[in-house]
Design a protein around this nucleic acid. Structure first.
Lengths: 202, 202
DNA sequence: CCTACCGATCGGTAGG
DNA sequence: CCTACCGATCGGTAGG
């Protein structure tokens, strides 16, 4: 019984994530959501407390996924380049396996109201901070250029998040191929050059 | 008389852009907008036809600005690296001088309905295409690496658009400094290396 | 899970 | 630019 209810709740949340990603959270009504589930809007409330509860559970659930992934990377003592490549790989992995839920974490969280909004922003900032630590490690190891870390972090995150706008599971690239290309681009940039880093292998 | 009405209309549109950027288009009501203007919601309709007309005029106005800027760059025969740096500089310039209106072009256009939605998407694709042409030029000139052009275009555009999320005119960097840093990052990536391109000057 | 319904708010109009 | 108001739709509840 409890399992049936929980299962149904997850179905509703998944359907909501898909709808909210397509139309936006504010533009989606509970009646829209009910229709995709083949039920009346009022029936949704047997399983969920409110519209915002859905958004909340998705946003915080994904924040947990992203944070757990990057903390694992930072705990293991690879060098900075490996760390960054791993962090990007994990990020792409999460986005491509949960594209609808990821859209809530990346952009639809704006629909949250206080005090949940502030709580969520804290988690996002934490994730950003973990990325930044990797870049700082890289500079200390003399592997990365001495760049503006905040600037570089935001630029990298914007690139990895943009994937969610164009990725479709039937596309030509696998998640790992996407992660590889993105990492190469971030490491090496666009211009031709020879890398003289000791770790470089042609 | 006509000037007074037009001036008032522009004030409303500017206030709307600011409001829509902060709260999102769908989450903003005409009553919210009226309040920021110190008038009743119904009075807005003496100056504008509908809520969507506001969004439309901003989105298409900005599309025109961005397209004009990049077409100018592509018409002048600089080399590809110069073209890309110029295109990024213009893009940053437009965003930083019209941050509210730019937000409509970058994300709030989703609030448009057909047939305007499709028309707008065409213009966005055109802008993307112009960027892509620059990357193709760069490869032909043997200045850029042979990269997936669609992939690189989207990555670059995501980075330049993300500026709109964190840029404030009282920040530490000028628009040209932002453009320079971004261009350097895109050209050179994060890793240490020596550039052997003939055009390279240390 | 449904029918029936609530108060609030939405974009927008009429008429001055 | 305002008052007065419209039909539609919103998130959500009561009761079964």
């Amino acid at each position: 019984m409890a399992e049936i209810i929980r299962g149904r709740k997850e179905q509703i949340i998944d359907a909501a994530a898909k709808l909210f990603k397509e139309k936006g959270y504010n533009a989606s009504s509970m009646r829209d959501l009910a229709q995709t589930m083949g039920m009346e809007a009022s029936s949704l409330y047997s399983h969920i407390k409110s519209k915002e509860e859905i958004l909340e559970s998705i946003c915080f659930g994904m924040a947990d996924k992203f944070l757990t992934a990057i903390k694992e990377v930072n705990d293991i003592y690879f060098n900075a380049e490996e760390k960054l490549r791993m962090a990007i790989r994990n990020h792409v992995q999460i986005i491509t396996s949960h594209p609808d839920h990821s859209a809530m974490f990346i952009k639809e969280w704006r629909g949250l109201t206080e005090p949940k909004l502030s709580k969520f922003k804290e988690l996002r900032d934490k994730y950003e901070h973990e990325f930044r630590v990797i870049l700082e490690d890289g500079e200390n190891e003399d592997v990365f250029d001495r760049v503006d870390k905040k600037f570089a972090t935001l630029t990298i995150l914007s690139a990895v998040n943009w994937i969610n706008e164009w990725y479709h599971s039937d596309g030509a690239m696998t998640p790992d191929e996407i992660a590889k290309k993105l990492s190469d681009f971030i490491m090496g940039g666009l211009c031709k050059k020879f890398v003289t880093d000791p770790n470089y292998k042609p």
